[in-house]
Nucleic acid binder design. Structure first.
Lengths: 128, 128
DNA sequence: TCAATATATGATAACCTGTTCATATATTCA
DNA sequence: TGAATATATGAACAGGTTATCATATATTGA
């Protein structure tokens, strides 16, 4: 990503140099993208859903398998899976009475891996 | 990540083949890692913080710059920055009265980019 | 030291989230 | 078709989260 030169302005009542704000503001994701992006990260930001997703990174699983694995009710699992499905984090495949879930695409495992990288590095780093 | 062969079990009252559960459960992140990971994603899962982070991906910024840019009070910005600092998503540098913030490391931009990849692809894909 | 400026923090209230419980839908098999 | 099983869904409650307001701390320069 590009770097904007930091002008030497002072934080007075007007706070920010308008030109600089404009440059950076133009680089921010638009409303719709921003919403979708935050929804996605929000979905990943829950221990239960993370467990479900990491489990699904290992194998396709039905709802009851997931529920037992993660330690929640099948109802709760179903609710969460609906959310994950809406956000295209998982996709489902019906097989008789059961519905099997799997990760939607490779972005998800990538995100999980990169997130783990961060917490591992952030966790071992100490003080500042 | 490895793939576990899907045994042909049925979802009865016992739900899951214990051996299979064990294999997958062993692959799940531990409690501490899981917590840190979900905290990190949760921090990314808020429009305000996402705007702050994408802005910081472009330039180092002081609190008041960030506040105006994102359209929140400096107090709110400060609260959010504390959270982001705690999670090692940003780091701060004091310069006189002002404190400049920047992204902590490259993982963050990587996560943001990968998240954007996902929403862009998921957004254009239609129906199923 | 005092005033001014920039940031940080604690408490509170409105809002959002995740689980539970009850119930509905879907599929299979007798 | 009816019973059994697997999943989905709506309502509601408990717990958590975010912005606001008031206040505190830190830094600079007079």
């Amino acid at each position: 990503m590009a770097t904007v030169p930091v002008t030497d302005e002072i934080c007075d009542t007007f706070h920010t140099d308008p030109a600089r704000v404009a440059v950076i503001q133009a680089s921010l994701p638009t409303g719709a993208t921003l919403e979708a992006l935050s929804e996605t990260f929000k979905a990943l930001g829950d221990p239960t859903r993370l467990r479900m997703l990491t489990a699904l990174a290992e194998a396709e699983l039905c709802v009851c398998d997931l529920a037992t694995l993660v330690g929640i009710s099948e109802s709760a699992a179903s609710h969460q899976l609906r959310l994950l499905r809406t956000l295209r984090l998982v996709r489902s495949r019906r097989d008789g009475r059961m519905v099997h879930y799997r990760l939607d695409d490779d972005h998800i495992t990538g995100l999980l891996a990169q997130g783990l990288d961060h917490v591992n590095e952030a966790g071992t780093r100490r003080e500042r």
